[in-house]
Design a protein around this nucleic acid. Structure first.
Lengths: 342, 342
DNA sequence: CTCCCGTCGGTAACCGGTTACCCTAACGTA
DNA sequence: TACGTTAGGGTAACCGGTTACCGACGGGAG
């Protein structure tokens, strides 16, 4: 039913090889022949069958991006950037949603679906350190987010500790001492939550201040809702709070919402800072101080590394590189703005 | 190099047909044989080659979702929902980004890349009414957003006019009369902007009020930034404003940010309402009154219609259905809350 | 007038599944 | 014992590109 290359060849009076040459812009085709073939293609309405090409070539021109949830602004902005970067390199992106659930993440690594694409950019959330060996796969893989314990897998990380430290120092500089942390959960692992907590407490420790655990509001998922709930719990404990550090922006915005509901002024009564620099934080009222983790660079780098591995045909190998993108503090109204320190 | 079905067959001492039967859960395989085949698969580490399967089957198990930008909350939330709905039906989603640019949208409709998937869910933005015939494609297609002028293409729409009218009536009910519209651009076409403007002005007209065009802030793109700019332009014209209707939520939030910067109180001085009910609007300060357009239902319906068409193998046909999902007004703080009308 | 070489294009095998069609063995029945 | 029936499984063609390999043709050099 559909028009094939052989149909075109017949129509144009040439061979399939020639049609293929034309379609793929190969040399050694005379202009007149090319013309004729293109005309036939147009007349017959020929469209290439990608499954067939993929089968022959052994590659698909697609990569998989696996993220927890597309609706979280950080990931939607990241995905957007990955898609753009992939398009620049001629790749299309297939998006998998893991929900941040360990089982689904493991499944993404091994499922047959994965094999529909040439490689995987993977932002794990639920994986445990003991799952590290699961990342030793035989296809091109680039990890985003936290570091794999070791191994040969490329890995693009952000400066979580450095960024968190900068937030801590900034809040201290603004004279805040009773700082709540919203979102902390696991403080020991190698996950973002842990690293961002560590960097922060380190800044406090350097200033001779100890973080009061009663000012920690835990949140397993990082959403506006859980941020708000965590903030409420902290406030309800009755310990004074003059600043809030949300481990990411949506947590911070959820917390800010609770402060608003309780009539606390930001930044006069309570300063607020987040992490990720999602677009929304630039428009909240007040705008949100945060850490720009270099997301565009992360996206580009991840795609490049992956495409590179695909092109080289070297699926794994010992060349697992860890690239850490430098973060940058973005000071906005929620901590008093870029003006003079309070 | 990679393990094929024939390798498995040889190893298990059966034929490829039997391996295929096992892999695809077909009947007529004795338990013992099945066991043996599964063991061989496991030993050899066999993984199915999807390109080959796709070539044989003529389908890929993937669908394309084409949206303007993934970073816009409406589309990221929609994409999330489409991905979930597709997964329920056994499909994976390939995301294309059009940027809302007409050329890219037309390209998505016809490109070879499109042929890598079984169907397309398409949310056009830049297409003109005169492009309607371009939508008469020979593969399964479901449109989101505004109506195609006519034709045989399935189409899931939201109740733009009804929703916008509800917003208008709500603002009037709250005693607002000098209402700015942010985002309007084309007021005649069949696009969302036009419909949402029409519904609104109709509500005003019904109340005997005429919309002052000086209170219209145009914005071609619908983002927080353009919303803010449009709001500034309106305010700078010096005409009084006691309410703002953003044609979508991010426009409204951008406008709200400007009101905040200028020291205008929301909702006391200026009420604000949007459209789309993105999650962010529930957490802004104040929270944003908006229209919930039934996005989850839109996503599910679109996927179902598409999968249905794919399954039926009836690419087009005269059965183009238009489904309109009913919108619902969500009253929040930015217009005075659900309490008694001011 | 040959020979050589580079250009252009044809032939057919191959990628790795699916499946129409066929055969066999085993069991039940007359 | 002969035969029908069906479950189980084998064979080979096919999906539609890609490409290794081969051959023909035309022009310039010897």
């Amino acid at each position: 039913m559909p028009v094939t290359m052989r149909d075109v060849a017949r129509h144009a009076g040439v061979s399939v090889k020639t049609v293929s040459n034309v379609v793929n812009d190969f040399p050694h085709v005379s202009p007149s022949t090319r013309e004729r073939v293109l005309a036939s293609i147009s007349v017959l309405g020929y469209r290439m069958n990608f499954s067939a090409r993929n089968l022959s070539l052994g590659r698909t021109g697609m990569i998989t991006l696996a993220v927890p949830e597309l609706r979280l602004p950080y990931f939607s902005e990241l995905s957007d950037e990955v898609i753009v970067a992939a398009a620049e390199r001629g790749y299309t992106v297939l998006v998998e949603r893991t929900g941040g659930v360990r089982e689904r993440e493991l499944e993404v690594l091994t499922s047959d679906r994965r094999r529909m694409t040439d490689g995987l950019i993977f932002s794990p959330l639920g994986l445990r350190p003991s799952d590290a060996h699961r990342l030793e796969v035989d296809y091109p893989l680039v990890l985003l987010g936290e570091r794999a314990l070791h191994g040969s897998v490329h890995h693009v990380a952000m400066g979580n500790v450095a960024g968190a430290r900068a937030v801590g120092e900034h809040l201290l500089e603004r004279g805040r001492r009773r700082i709540a942390v919203v979102g902390s959960y696991d403080t020991r692992g190698a996950g973002a939550g842990s690293l961002r907590t560590q960097g922060f407490t380190r800044a406090l420790a350097d200033a001779g201040i100890e973080h009061d655990p009663r000012r920690t509001g835990e949140a397993l998922e990082w959403t506006r809702t859980t941020g708000a709930e965590a903030m409420r719990r902290v406030l309800d404990r009755g310990v004074g709070v003059d600043a809030v550090y949300g481990l990411n922006d949506v947590l911070a915005l959820g917390a800010m919402r609770v402060l608003y509901e309780r009539g606390l002024r930001v930044p006069e009564d309570v300063a607020v800072a987040g992490f990720d620099d999602i677009e929304e934080g630039g428009f909240s009222c007040p705008s949100l101080t945060t850490v720009q983790p270099g997301r565009p660079e992360i996206a580009r780098t991840a795609v490049w590394l992956l495409v590179d591995r695909i092109a080289r045909g070297a699926p794994a190998g010992p060349g697992g590189r860890e690239l850490v993108v430098a973060p940058e503090l973005v000071v906005r109204e929620s901590t008093g703005g870029a003006g003079e320190p309070a």
